[in-house]
Simulated assay, not measured.
Amino acid sequence: MSIGAVPGTGPATGPLSVVRKATRKTFEDLPTDRTLVMGVLNVTDNSFSDGGENFDAGKAIDHGLRMHYAGADIIDIGGESTAPGTEEVSVADEQARILPVVEALVKAGVYVSVDTRHTETARAALEYGEVMINDVSGVNHEADMPQLIAETGARYIVMHNRGNSKTMDGLAEYDNLVSEVVAETQQVIDTFLAAGVKKEQLIVDPGLGFSKTAEHNWQLLKHLTEFEKLGYPVLIGASRKRFLGTLLAEHNTEAMEPRQRDHATAAITALVAQEGAWCVRVHSVVSNLDAVKTVAARQAAE
């Protein structure tokens, strides 16, 4: 099937212009001997990290395949920027952006994660096969999302967050950051378990940058073991985030641009892999895959 045949895309060019049907990868097929690498695929026109270069579905599919062939274990597809201050996208627009990409990548044998806050979009994506749902809503998830996850048996990422893109920065106030974030994450977990979701379906994410200051992010990274004590795989999404741009800024000038934060991202990947993180969500696949393989080799040495 050519990319051009996917609804909503134009003629395709380049070495990855043909998406061949392949054996569909499942969660059980993912590596277990190292931290996994999840490649970020933003099908948006206002992504903070890439400026919307994959907004066209054909380009998005090409980029997703390139990350897959570069070694990404999971491709996380999102149609709505959740950076602070961004406007929300309607469910209809979100689906028009991502569903052709989800369909093409699943058919190509890619293990897909769908970055969505909406039950309706998650349900539509699951029609294409086994996909993971990555929901950044946190404590404000849609009321019918737990039931969908219970009914379908889909893997679901519970990410800590308060509010939405317009309000979360104003909600970054904690008396005891780590214990409160862990407790609020457990609260969301309990809601899903009560709906019939099985423990093995869930993954947790501390939500770096979501209702967190830069200092909060560093504290959570330092206390990663507190999230591991919850008893679920832990996903870390630090890639290119603004707290890294602030860290790398020289002489108190403006923060480094997103693409200039990849070396710092790989450093964090190595650190959290050493701490036992299940997966890292990143924009640059190769450097972070190198990092997790290096850590795994060191840990395997006798």
Rank of each mutant, 00 (worst) to 15 (best):
S2P: 00
G4D: 15
T9R: 02
G10M: 04
P15N: 04
L16F: 03
S17K: 15
S17R: 10
V18P: 09
K21C: 07
A22N: 08
T23G: 14
K25H: 02
D29C: 04
R34S: 11
R34A: 06
L36V: 11
L36P: 14
G39D: 02
L41V: 07
N46G: 01
F48P: 10
E53Q: 15
E53R: 15
F55D: 01
D56K: 15
G58I: 12
K59P: 00
D62P: 00
A72L: 10
I74Y: 00
I77T: 12
I77Y: 00
G79N: 03
S81H: 00
T82Q: 05
P84E: 04
G85T: 07
G85K: 10
T86M: 10
T86K: 09
V89Y: 09
Q95R: 05
Q95K: 15
L99Y: 01
L99D: 10
V102A: 02
E103M: 06
V110Q: 02
V112S: 02
D115W: 10
T121W: 11
A125M: 03
G129V: 13
V131N: 00
I133C: 04
V139G: 02
N140T: 14
N140F: 01
M145S: 13
P146K: 02
L148H: 03
E151L: 09
A154S: 10
L171H: 07
L171E: 09
N176F: 11
L177K: 13
A183Y: 07
Q187L: 06
V188Y: 05
F192Q: 10
E200P: 00
L202P: 08
G209W: 12
F210D: 09
A214N: 15
L220Y: 12
H223M: 08
E228M: 15
G231T: 06
P233M: 13
V234I: 14
L235C: 11
L235N: 03
I236M: 07
A238C: 01
S239Q: 11
L244N: 14
E254A: 15
H263C: 02
A267Y: 05
A270I: 03
V272L: 05
Q274P: 00
E275F: 09
H283C: 11
S287C: 09
S287M: 07
A291I: 13
K293R: 13
K293M: 08
T294S: 11
V295F: 10
A300D: 12
A301G: 03
E302I: 12
